[in-house]
Design a protein around this nucleic acid. Structure first.
Lengths: 228, 228
DNA sequence: CTCGATAGTCAATGACATTGACTACAGGTA
DNA sequence: TACCTGTAGTCAATGTCATTGACTATCGAG
């Protein structure tokens, strides 16, 4: 029965204004979430949209441009509904950091792209403005506020993106990575690696959410003491 | 004149034991440094080694395994000659962080892979041991030392990898990314983005080496105060 | 000297992104 | 109403890759 031909089961040509960056981006996001970034092909997009694969090229110059749009969608999700501003700048920094990580982990297949493709897109403006505000409210002078913004923001992006990458690995590979810590590291000679031997049981797993939390706290603590 | 046929200009079959993971990895590194990661194809590797492209498959299961070997080579370069241990744990942490970044920036095409492919390989053991030692010398109790190790190491890897990714972009794309900050951000409405308008001139460029430096200092400062 | 294992070679194969030519349709104009 | 015209959607290549299975030369053990 209609063995999935070109563009929809015998369907007619796709109506004229029915494709745009928005619907294509959403379809791409669905494919990534469902089947992984390596399944995001023009072929698959065509199927998802019930359109001809190359119809995408009328809306994105190439695949890279589509990927950039996906990362921007993540930033949009971060700021959706507005970023909360309280009278506690540290709490606000914490909140925005975890919101960024949340968006990345909700779509890890896309989140892992952010570190590789640093492009700054429209939806990031709001995050920049927000974090800058926190730094000023912390009491940092302009120069320091600007520098700490850059470092805080980029550290959060880099860390969250790396965690997303781990989370995006297929199960067997990911398991092998984690196993390496649980097993291989325990078999090293204690006289060559004394610290490792002593602390191996205390080292948090690679995928513990506490790692990101601690990273953020360390940064905030430092910023606080610099503000004095 | 011998228009570069298959495996070397009419050369005979490659001698039997002449290929191994070592020489292949080195050839791959040369190709990445010279022409970029996207030029690292089996075809190109064959040319570089004067061997048949598929000869690689006798030494690496697939391309992913080769890429993993490349990231391990970076860790090897980090620890080459040993990591210096002084009586100042903070200085030692600083040194190892910048050494990691140095290796990544020396081979940015490979460095950008590390965040995406978190796999821990043999040559990283030494780095782990070293950083753990610093944390203990800082005076942190075991549990804290282990947690701070995890966060410090992963932050450094993630940040350095992200910087490598920016540095690995082709010149036009990279220039566009940087331009976005110098130009686009200046055209935003000041009433919607007051902090951005006020601090735009103080924000360090995306590619300033001071960013990484400051990130490391913030982490070290926090670790120091936790050790008390 | 013979055999067997295996490194190196070779010729497909199949998945993709990308391109250039083609077609149909919407909206404007006579 | 009929005729343009630009452009979104379609289609059929093309070229680049990684990967595979079969083939062959070579090394070392016996």
């Amino acid at each position: 029965m209609a063995a999935t031909p070109k563009a929809g089961a015998g369907r007619t040509r796709r109506p004229r204004g029915s494709l745009n960056q928005q619907v294509i981006t959403e379809a791409a996001l669905r494919i990534c979430d469902r089947a992984g970034i390596e399944s995001l092909t023009f072929e698959a997009l065509g199927r998802e949209l019930d359109a001809h694969p190359t119809a995408i090229y009328r809306h994105f110059r190439d695949k890279d441009e589509l990927l950039l749009a996906l990362t921007d969608a993540l930033h949009a999700e971060t700021t959706a509904g507005g970023l909360p501003v309280t009278d506690d700048w540290a709490e606000d920094l914490r909140a925005v950091a975890h919101r960024i990580r949340g968006a990345f982990m909700a779509h890890p297949q896309v989140g892992q792209l952010v570190a590789a493709r640093t492009a700054r897109r429209p939806h990031e403006f709001e995050v920049v403005e927000h974090i800058l505000g926190c730094m000023r409210r912390a009491g940092l002078p302009d120069r320091d506020a600007a520098q700490c913004y850059r470092v805080f923001a980029d550290t959060v992006l880099a860390y969250a993106s790396m965690e997303a990458a781990l989370y995006a690995l297929d199960a067997p590979t990911r398991e092998a990575d984690l196993r390496s810590w649980r097993v291989d590291y325990r078999e090293l000679p204690p006289d060559t690696y004394p610290n490792l031997a002593a602390l191996i049981d205390d080292i948090p797993p690679l995928d513990s959410p506490d790692n990101f939390r601690l990273a953020v706290e360390l940064l905030i603590d430092s910023i606080r003491s610099r503000a004095r």
